[in-house]
């Protein structure tokens, strides 16, 4: 039991990074991690000893993330924002966030949740396609196309932002 808990504690930084890439806002991301940990602790028996807790925890968190995204869609964005949304949004997702990094983070948030999750798992978290496909519960082919489309989308969004920036400069 204690060994399991210690192993879970070690995964928290990774879970926080994944959540932050998915959700941008720091408090919402940590809320997601907290939900994930609470659920994991209730189901400690589901985790086979000897296996790394990482994939198990990421799977739990992914389900929670997708649930949450569905609720957002159903109830409208405001439903899942904290009550002090103004303040939360003002908190930079990343310390000393530069304009360039903000553009990437913004673009990432605009990609559909499924593609975002696939891209973040592979490109940021460094999971293999096989691992990511298992955690996301999709066939490898689906995962592949989500990553390919996610990257295309990200590139297009970034190009778009760059173009708008250029226009702003020209207009001055």
């Amino acid at each position: 039991m204690e060994e399991k808990k210690a192993a879970i504690l070690q995964e928290i930084p990774r879970l926080r990074r994944y959540a932050r890439a998915l959700l941008r806002d720091r408090d919402s991301a940590d809320d997601l991690v907290q939900d994930c940990l609470e659920r994991a602790l209730m189901r400690l028996d589901n985790w086979r000893t000897g296996e790394s807790p990482r994939r198990w925890l990421f799977t739990i968190m992914h389900h929670l993330f997708i649930d949450q995204m569905r609720k957002v869609k159903r109830r409208g964005e405001a439903a899942v924002l904290p009550l002090d949304a103004g303040e939360a949004m003002a908190t930079p997702a990343i310390q000393a966030e530069s304009a360039a990094s903000r553009e990437i983070v913004d673009a990432l948030q605009q990609i559909s949740p499924d593609r975002r999750a696939a891209l973040v798992m592979v490109a940021i978290e460094g999971f293999s396609y096989a691992e990511a496909a298992t955690m996301l519960g999709v066939p490898a082919g689906t995962l592949m196309s989500r990553i390919a489309r996610g990257r295309e989308e990200l590139r297009a969004l970034l190009d778009d932002q760059a173009r708008r920036r250029t226009i702003r400069i020209v207009e001055k």
């Binding site: 930084p13 990074r17 940590d30 940990l37 983070v105 990257r151």
Partner: peptide, 28 residues
């Protein structure tokens, strides 16, 4: 390049102190 930018953007999160509310959940 986009990949490297993405990865670079979030590595700092790993070094952030873990909020007490998260460790409290695990420690019970």
């Amino acid at each position: 390049a986009d990949n490297a930018a993405l990865r670079g953007l979030f590595t700092g999160v790993l070094d952030e102190p873990v909020p007490a509310r998260l460790t409290a959940v695990v420690k019970g």
